[in-house]
Amino acid sequence: MTTVSTERLATIFVEVADTLVDDFDLLDFLHMLTERAADLVSAAAVGLLLADQRGRLEFMAGSNEAVKLVELFQLQTHEGPCLEAFRTGRPVINVNLGKATPRWPRFAPAAAAAGFQSVHAFPLRLRSQVIGAMNVFGDTEGGDFDGSDVPVVQALADVAAIGLLQERSIRRGEVLTEQLQGALNSRVVIEQAKGAVAQAAGVDVDEAYAIIRSYSRRHNRKLSEVARALVAESDILPHVLYS
């Protein structure tokens, strides 16, 4: 990876600021951040994981949501760079996956088999609390972070954490818990909707996700709302499939 461009970084932060003032969809926002982060550091894939109140990391958004990649994110509930970044509150950078099997016996071989060469993870921090981690995968050899890239990517991770606090009364710890649980549940709704669309359209879950996203974008509706409607109101399904 090369040193990030200041110009591109500025563009991303403007986009972020623009999103945060509006009534926005958290999952859409996190998804956008993973796409921008991947683009910014020329990473092969970027994903975000949030911890629930019991400290279990859950996959929230990825620059690409192919089943194989999602499995790599989910694997880190048990071991891997995200779990380390989450537990220590410090970034894990420039780990060569080919040599990481002793460190992560299940994660490292699975990530290498998926075609990745390097992996990094940045804690999602909110004041003194760590609430999750951002995962960055590289697929070129020696494609490592420059020392000056680290704070930049960490800043993007911090922005993702800020996005969680949509409400103004952010001083209350309770609000963070309420938001987190709401966000985790929204992610579950997306998975349920993927299943419903996959079944109804006869496609796999990756294609189903693309259909849902494309529908919500074309109709300017929140991803989470469309997903919820898909599994709670039977009459929207034909519209999403055949519009």
Partner: peptide, 19 residues
């Protein structure tokens, strides 16, 4: 709780709902 399976459980729920 095992690897990679939680999202499949939720996807399966949506599929069976439609089935």
């Amino acid at each position: 709780d095992d690897i990679g399976l939680r999202s499949e459980l939720f996807q399966a729920q949506g599929m069976v709902m439609v089935q």
